[in-house]
Structure formats: C-alpha cells, structure tokens
Design a protein around this nucleic acid. Structure first.
Lengths: 349, 349
DNA sequence: GGTTTTAATGTAACCGCTTGCAATAGGCAA
DNA sequence: TTGCCTATTGCAAGCGGTTACATTAAAACC
C-alpha cells in the first residue's frame, strides 16, 4: 500500500540513481545543454524517476525558474455577477483555450476574483500562480486590462479593445458578420431593419452598431436611430426592447439581435403577442449557440468559431510569455451566416 | 510608470516597515497567535504592504506550507476526446464549483491531461499544484479515481461510483428522478415505456436503468428488456436507437431518454419519419438543459441542480483537504420533473 | 535588587528545484 | 612527468515564503 506517502522528490530520485540532485535535475529536464551527462548516468536517473513515478513539484519549480506552466483566465462578467461559464459564448472560448493550453502542456487556472476596481484586482494576478492571463470579453468600463498591463503581466485578450494597450487579441470579424446579416436582409427586401444591441460597454456593441450603420449606408439606406434599441447580452430586457420597436407607428420588418440570447427573447415576446416570424418579422441573431438550430422557427444567425478564437488567443498569450511580439491589431476570424427559418422575404402589405 | 518591475516581496514590505520578514509574515497572515506583535508594528507592516500592493507569492507560500489554495478539476471525457466543457452538464457543474471555490478563496485549475491509464495519469496530480482534485462524472472503466485515491490525493467526486473507494461525492438522486418520470408516464396511461441509456460505463446509466426497472415493477408493470436501448450521452446514436424501438412490431408509446441530448436526437428522428410527439409518442429527457424549454415541442425532463451539486462537491473537497471526514454515501440532491409539451396521454388506438 | 515572566522581535533552517561555478578525473600534448 | 583541456559531476546559493526557536528588553515578582 503506497497510500498517503509523500510524493517522491528530486532528492529521492538522485539518491536512488546514486547521483547528486543537480545531475538528476539536468537529466530530467534536458536543460543545461552546455553541461553534458554520460549516457550511463542519464539512464540510471531516468530509470529511478520512472520507478518512483516521479513528478516534479510545480511549486518548487515555479519558484526557482519563475515560470509556472500555467495560464490564468478571467471571464468578463457584469459587475457583481458570478456567471462565469453560464453561457455558450464563454464555454466555447474556454473549450478552445483548454485544448490549446493542453497541447502546450500548460494548465489553465480560472480566476474568480471579482472585478472590483482595476487598482485593487490587478495586483492579485501577481501572485506568481500563472505566467500570464487571458482576458475574455471584459466590459470596457472595468479597466482591468489596463490595470494588468500596467503591472507588466503578460496578456492576451478576446473580444475587447486591446489594441490601444498593445495587447494581442482575437475576435470574430464583427464587421464582416454584420455585413452578412444586413446584406441577407436587404436581399430579402427589408429596408426598415432594427438593431438590438447588448451592454454599451462591450466592444462588440460599438463594433456591431457601427458596422450596422455603415452596411445600411452602403446599401443606400438611411439608418434610422429610432430603430436602435438596447438590452443585455444575457437576453434580459429583450422583450421590452422588442415591444418598443413593435409598437412604433412605422414598425421594422426585420430585427438584428446582437446575440442569440437577445434573439431568443425577441422570439418569445413576438410569439406572446402573436407576431409571426418570419412572416411579419424577420429575426437574425449572432453566435449560433446550440439552441439556435433547435428552436421553432430555427434562428438565422452568425456563427463564430469560438474554439478557434479561444485557441488563437491562448497561443498568442503563450507566445507573449515566451517573449514573442505580436501586432496590436486583433486577429479576426471570419464568421458565417447560417440561414434558417427565422428570416424571410419582407411581407408585402 | 511602474511597468515591468518585479512584484514586491515580503522582504520589500519588511524593509519598508523596518521589521524582519518574520514579523511581516506573521502580521500579514494573522497566524502564529502565540507570537504576538505590537499594534504599532502591525500597523506599519500593513501600511507598507498596502503601499506596495503586496501580494504573497503563491509558489513560495505553497512550497513552504504545502497548501496551494487551489483545487484541480478533472472532467470525465470519453477516451481520446477533448470535449471538456462542450455540454451543459459539465458547465453547470463547473459554474457551481467556481462559485464555491471562489467563496472559499481557492483557485480552480482545470486539468487537461488525457485519461491515459490510471497508473500513468494519476501521479501527474502529485505535482503540488493543487490541494486536491474534483473528479466529474468519470467513466467507471477509467479507474482514475482509484489511482488518485491510492496516491493519497484528497478527492471528491460528482456522479460516479465513489462510495466503494470511500470518496465523498455528490449527485442528483437518480432513483427519485427516474421514479418521477415513470410515475408521470404511467399516470398518462403509458405502459409500454422504452428506455434509452447512455454509455454503459457511466454510473448514471446503471443507476437509472435499475431505477427504471424497479419503478416499472412497483407500478405492477413487467419491464420489457426489448425496450431497453443504448447510445451515447452526447446524443450520438440516438436516431438509430429510436428507429430500432419504433420499428418493433409492438412499439412503445413513450420513451425515457437518459439525458436531453439523447431526447433531442430522438425528437429529430421522430420528426424525420413523421412520428408525432406527443400524440404518437411521449418523450422525456433528463437534465433540463436550456434548449429543452426552447424546442418544439418543448421537452418534459428532469431538472437537476447542477450548480448546487458542483458547489457541494467542492465544499466536500475543501473539507477533506482540511481534514474533515465525510460519510462515503453520496450526497444526493432532489431532482424536479419539469412537465412540458413532449408528453401526453397515451393515444388510444 | 536579583530573578522570573512575559511581550516583542529577530535568526536561520527548511520547502523542492534550478543553476552558476567549482571540482574532479581522465586523456593527451609537451 | 607536468600542465592543460575536456568531459562529467557535485556544491551551494538562491527563488519567496513559513515557522521552530533563540534573543532581547521590559515588566512583575519576592
């Protein structure tokens, strides 16, 4: 019974192999290329380590060489919220991060510290637990990125304004996604197209709003600010936003919701008041969450490659940790328009 | 600009406060109640630490006191798979874990090491990175739990056979959940009820199959083994399982799918061959994933409190790390039957 | 006043591993 | 034989904390 004994240390390996722990260290992590070890010794050490199922202590190693082989991940959450992984966006990113980090032999540590103020929270990340931090879709108002950046912590980000801070980041190409949506709707004959955005302090809100306006103009349509509504990305407030649009004298024939959760809220509200989708109203979402294909009518939406985005950001972070330099411009991934049942030709009436 | 300077150490704090680093240490982590420190000194140290935004180095602290204030989490995945957080079950548990761990001031580290063999993988968790490991729904065939247990690593588990290993665990009350389903269906007049389970090596499969058989017997019905089918919890193979049941000479009037992903597959297959739900076939799922309420017809299913289960398991793990002892019997959480549109009275024909 | 308590703080040895540098031992040229 | 180079290996000082124990000084006791 080997239960409850302490894990073997490098000293144990060295003793069993009949060498100093210096030699054991050199053998086991292949470093010190200038200092060579004889083949016989190398084998003895490796055999001893295998016999003991030796695993180096990450704390000691981290302390000595100041690299932990772990990265931290910080999810953007609304102030006071603890909903870290309750939506498919975050979990999609996380899955990509886990795969990329795993491939690189890095652990992933999720930070749950609240987003107090950047001055207060940022120093917490200097606890030496991780080599760098990945920040996912933080609200711009939480200036955590600048706080972390000022402390010299290696960073990469997803879906946020990282360019001005010279932080590498990855994101979906929001502009391209919005253009796909607007072109699709216009192609179906819509011209009064409404926009329902999420929180104002998310970078995607500004980007999509701006892209929407441009795309409308490009199509020769005058965007109507009356048709811009706002709620939360969680879907909260979507019903109200929908109703305010629907009760206008000159109501829109299509609504572009900035994510699928908002679109779901709109669909629910539409059904409850008997507005037919897509006959009376076309509806488009963004994200292509699993539910989008299952609902009735199924949702036309923009798919973004979340796992690729998460993986790319992870690789950038690992690169930054290794000292590489990246361009500040975000790495953008192409979205795809998934046309389903919630959009149709504009009703002639 | 304070950029890129090294994080302040305890020595820095001690120097600024004009004390030895012993005193600083004692003040800052409040320990050593036998050794007292004067109020004046205490204040000086605290002020110095605050001025420097001092954060103790987790590696050094972990090395010294052999506790890292971090827990590991290992997701049960199919052999060769890297789908850690791609399904709502895992993310629901994770969310609960994050909240509970965060409340206790612990970090959560996700392990991505593959489930090689228990002999190979288990020692990896002795790297000192975490104080204990939470194992979520592992396949019984991957004897990782026994491997970890043999090494004396503090453990807690979710949804698995942990009792024989004397490992504290939490889970939904599968038996109660299944009974709710069977009673509901019988109440609607069904007697030929089919069961579609997930992988055979998941503890829930055995538990739910057994509970199903018992519940049928308790209702005075003879369970028909012909009506037991199997596929994967991911939903893969659900169509085939459904068709094999549907093509029987004496087909079932109701199907209990062991999770919502399977139920979704069944619903899809049923629609594709024109089998009407619930008119010709009642369908029940398990889990109550977000999609369940959105599909048409919406899915009758069993809701389990995933976040509570995750949080409870976390608290057990933290307790075990602190030396507490828990009963080996799993802590069970009551499920709730959510009746929606996919179940109805048996068709009289 | 001398001795014992007690309060307050400092010293130094670890925790397990990395790494600069010293040390040892053959081998070979001089 | 002596000296020097090179291939191996060991020594020891950290990394940044924690903590048993020693130390000092002031207070309390007889």
């Amino acid at each position: 019974m080997t239960s409850h004994n302490k894990p073997p240390t490098l000293q144990d390996v060295a003793r069993d192999a009949g060498v100093s722990c210096n030699t054991a260290s050199v053998v086991l992590n292949g470093s010190r290329s200038n200092t060579r070890v004889s083949e016989a010794t190398r084998e003895r050490v490796i055999r001893a380590a295998a016999n003991l199922s030796y695993v180096p202590n990450a704390m000691a190693r981290g302390l000595a060489q100041k690299r932990t082989q772990a990265i931290g991940i910080l999810f953007g959450v609304a102030a006071g919220s603890t909903d870290y992984v309750t939506n498919p966006y975050m979990t999609g990113i996380l899955q990509g991060v886990l795969e990329a980090a795993g491939d690189a032999g890095h652990c992933v540590t999720i930070y749950t510290q609240g987003w107090v103020s950047a001055k207060v929270s940022a120093p917490l990340f200097r606890d030496g637990r991780t080599d760098g931090v990945l920040v996912i879709a933080p609200p711009a108002t939480a200036d955590i990125l600048s706080g972390l950046s000022a402390l010299g912590i290696p960073l990469a980000a997803v879906a946020c304004e990282a360019e001005v801070l010279n932080i590498p980041s990855a994101d979906v190409d929001n502009r391209a996604g919005v253009e796909l949506v607007v072109r699709h709707l216009i192609h179906l004959g819509h011209s009064r197209i409404a926009l329902i955005t999420g929180e104002a302090d998310m970078s995607s809100t500004a980007l999509r709003t701006d892209a929407f306006t441009s795309a409308m103009r490009d199509a020769g349509l005058q965007p109507d600010r009356q048709l811009y509504a706002r709620c939360n990305y969680s879907g909260e407030g979507a019903e109200r936003a929908f109703l305010s649009l629907w009760n206008m004298q000159d109501r829109p024939t299509a609504i572009f919701a900035c994510n699928d959760a908002i679109a779901a809220g709109v669909a629910r509200a539409a059904r409850s008041i008997g507005a037919a989708i897509p006959d009376e109203l076309s509806l488009v979402g963004f994200d292509d969450v699993p539910t989008a294909s299952m609902v009735t009518p199924s949702l036309t939406t923009v798919r973004q490659p979340l796992q690729m985005i998460g993986a790319e950001a992870t690789q950038m972070l690992l690169g930054r940790i290794a000292g590489e330099v990246y361009p500040a411009t975000p790495r953008l991934f192409s979205p795809a328009l998934i046309v389903r049942e919630s959009t149709g030709k504009v009703c002639s009436r």
